[in-house]
Amino acid sequence: MNTILKHRITAIDFLRGAIMIIMALDHVRDYLYSGSFFYDPLDLTKTSGILFFTRWITHFCAPVFMLLAGTSAFLTGQKKTKKELSLFLLKRGLWLIFLEMIVVNFAWNFNITFPMFFFITIWALGVSMILLAAIIHLPIKWILGICLTIIAGHNLLDDIHVAGNSLPAFGWSLLHDQQFFTWHKTVFLVGYPIIPLMAVMPLGYCLGMWYTADYDTGKRQKNLLILGGLAIVSFIILRYANVYGDPVKWEVQKNTLFTFLSFINVSKYPPSLLYLLMTLGAALLFLSFTEKLRGGVVKVVSIYGRVPMFYYLIHIYVIHLVAIVASALTPGQDWKIWILTKPIWFTTDLKGYGFSLPVAYLVWIIIVIALYPLCKRYDAYKQSNKQKWWLSYL
């Protein structure tokens, strides 16, 4: 039983650690790659293959993190009553929303006046956790049915929009329509509408049934392989049909590579059905293929996966500080520009800042390596102080 439990934790932490490392690449690109201030890396009329994949690979981070959060919730629930787990998820969800609005927003902008608020990854995670707190009281089959219905059918809402800078428009945006809003000169970006992300975490909760200590390892690996394979095959069929599952159709491009890029360039905000089939399907295959994986790489990467929130909060501050230091050391640049008053993607004054893509990759690697000792020490502290309740919130 202990072997199965240890193996199960390692497999989940390895995947979560991998996506946390990949996630940092996207944020380094945002702040340190010079091209980020000129065009979208997914714009097929301007991008290159390597730049496209630098952005595209990070598409896997948010939905996989949501999925694994649900699985972790199920496993935590093995040591709690449903009522205790529900209360824990509710409190943690509210805490995550607070972190997003204050701690994470400040990290992105370094502006104490808070001229803008981003409703992005941690916000969506927190809301999903609050909703999960309620839905866990339903039978697993009901939870699974509700989640699959939302994920499969939410693209029927793609053509529904509420225009204007109004409260109804903001409310609909929180649900299913990425938009910017302003109120008393404060900018609000709804980056991650909660539909369908709110269904991904409960889906991960259902997945947790395969990760109980008495569940057969070989059967779990086979199930993950079949389910992941079906998701990927479904993605290919639906995407090729170009009829349903994503608001943006793929098109033949100037060459085979760019046609392929168009094919896999699915919508992230909100995540389309095809986006989730692609990312979650790959995640399930990853879990299956790494079920019995061992070694130094797994051990190191898993450290990041055991302290994801700690790593997430620190890495944003570090990346932003690196951008400030780089500007301070570069003649003709003003580091104060990094105290942002507008979203970084629309700060036109940043054109001319930043470095080449290879330099951005190098900085990414250095930051990830530099954070490893901190993550390892914090993980050790958590393991030796499990009785401290507050550690489960960070």
Rank of each mutant, 00 (worst) to 15 (best):
K388C: 10
Y381L: 15
S302W: 06
G305F: 03
K388N: 15
W335R: 08
W338D: 01
P331F: 03
V300T: 14
G296I: 06
R294T: 14
L257G: 00
W345I: 12
K382H: 07
Y311L: 07
A360L: 10
I344L: 09
A380S: 15
Y312H: 03
L340C: 01
V322R: 06
V301T: 09
F310P: 01
G352N: 02
D334E: 05
I344Y: 09
V298C: 05
I264F: 04
V307R: 04
F355I: 06
W390M: 10
A283V: 02
Y317T: 07
V325R: 05
N265Q: 14
L362D: 02
V368W: 01
F260K: 09
K292A: 05
N265C: 11
F289R: 08
Y353C: 02
S288L: 00
T259I: 09
F346P: 08
W364E: 05
P270T: 06
K292S: 11
P271T: 06
N385A: 11
P308H: 10
K376W: 12
I319L: 11
F286G: 04
F286R: 03
K386N: 13
I337V: 14
K342D: 13
L280V: 12
Q333M: 07
Y353L: 04
G352A: 07
P358Q: 11
K292E: 00
S288V: 04
L261Y: 13
Y312E: 05
L284Y: 03
V368E: 01
V307F: 09
T256A: 13
W364C: 00
L257I: 10
E291V: 05
Y378L: 12
V297A: 12
R306F: 07
Y311G: 02
R306Y: 06
V266M: 06
R294C: 02
V359H: 10
D349R: 15
A328I: 01
W364G: 00
I366Y: 00
Y311M: 10
F260R: 06
Q383W: 09
S356H: 12
P331M: 01
P308S: 08
V301R: 09
F346H: 15
S356M: 09
G305W: 05
G296N: 11
L274Q: 12
V300G: 01
R306D: 04
V325D: 01
L274E: 12
V300I: 14
T330W: 03
L350H: 07
S356Q: 02
I365Y: 08
I316L: 15
K351Y: 13
F286L: 03
Y372N: 02
A360Q: 09
R306E: 09
Q387E: 15
Y275I: 00
F263M: 08
L362H: 00
Q333E: 03
L374N: 06
P308V: 08
L362P: 00
T290P: 01
R306H: 10
G352L: 07
L273T: 12
I366R: 00
W389Y: 13
K336V: 07
L257N: 07
L261K: 02
A380H: 14
S288R: 01
S262C: 08
L321Q: 10
R294G: 01
S262Q: 05
K388V: 14
I319T: 10
F263N: 06
D379K: 13
L274H: 07
L362E: 02
S267T: 13
M278R: 05
D349W: 13
L340D: 00
L371Q: 14
R377M: 13
F289L: 14
T279M: 14
V359L: 12
